[in-house]
Amino acid sequence: QTTIQVRVPYRVVGLVVGPKGATIKRIQQRTHTYIVTPGRDKEPVFAVTGMPENVDRAREEIEAHITL
C-alpha cells in the first residue's frame, strides 16, 4: 500500500468530488483505492491510498477532471 497526494486547482475540487461525492466514489471503486477529499478550508489536495498501480490510475482519473 502507498499513499500519494494529488494537488488540484481549487475550482475543480467540486468537479472531482461530484454530486454527493458520487464521482470520487466511482473513482475509488474503479481503481480500488481509498481517497480522502480535502476539506473546504484546506489545501486542494486529495490523499490517495492503495496499491501503487491503482494509485497511479486514480491520479490519472483525478487529473482527467482538471482538463475538462
Rank of each mutant, 00 (worst) to 15 (best):
T33M: 08
Q28I: 00
G21R: 08
K25D: 08
P19D: 10
T3Q: 05
H65C: 14
V17T: 03
D41V: 03
T33L: 08
Q5N: 11
K25V: 07
V8A: 03
V48L: 02
V45K: 02
F46R: 01
A22Q: 11
V16D: 01
G18P: 01
K20G: 14
I66K: 08
I35L: 05
T37N: 03
I66Q: 11
L68P: 15
A58W: 02
G18S: 06
T67P: 14
H32G: 13
E60F: 04
P19H: 15
N54K: 06
G21L: 03
V16R: 06
R30M: 14
P38G: 05
T37S: 13
V16W: 01
G39M: 09
T37I: 14
T33G: 05
V45Y: 10
Q1V: 14
V12S: 14
A58P: 05
V16P: 02
Q28V: 00
R30I: 10
G14N: 05
I4L: 09
E63Y: 13
R7W: 04
D41G: 14
Q28D: 07
E61P: 04
R7H: 11
R11M: 09
P44C: 01
P44Q: 02
I27L: 07
T49H: 09
V17E: 06
K25A: 08
Q1D: 03
R59D: 00
R11W: 12
N54I: 12
V12F: 14
V17C: 11
I62A: 09
A22N: 14
R40K: 13
V17W: 03
I62Y: 02
V16E: 02
R7Q: 07
V36Y: 01
D41M: 10
I27F: 02
V16M: 08
A64G: 10
P44A: 11
R40L: 12
R57N: 09
L15D: 03
R26G: 14
T67Q: 15
P44V: 01
I4T: 04
Q5C: 11
T37E: 09
E60M: 13
T23I: 07
P52S: 10
N54W: 01
T23R: 09
G18H: 00
T33V: 04
I27Y: 01
D41N: 13
T49C: 08
D41L: 05
A58S: 01
Y10E: 15
I24N: 01
V48E: 06
G14E: 12
A58G: 04
K20R: 11
V45L: 08
G18R: 04
Q1W: 01
P52W: 05
R26A: 15
I62V: 02
V13K: 05
V13H: 04
R26C: 00
I62T: 07
G21S: 08
K25F: 03
R26Q: 13
P44T: 06
P52D: 01
Q28A: 14
P38H: 06
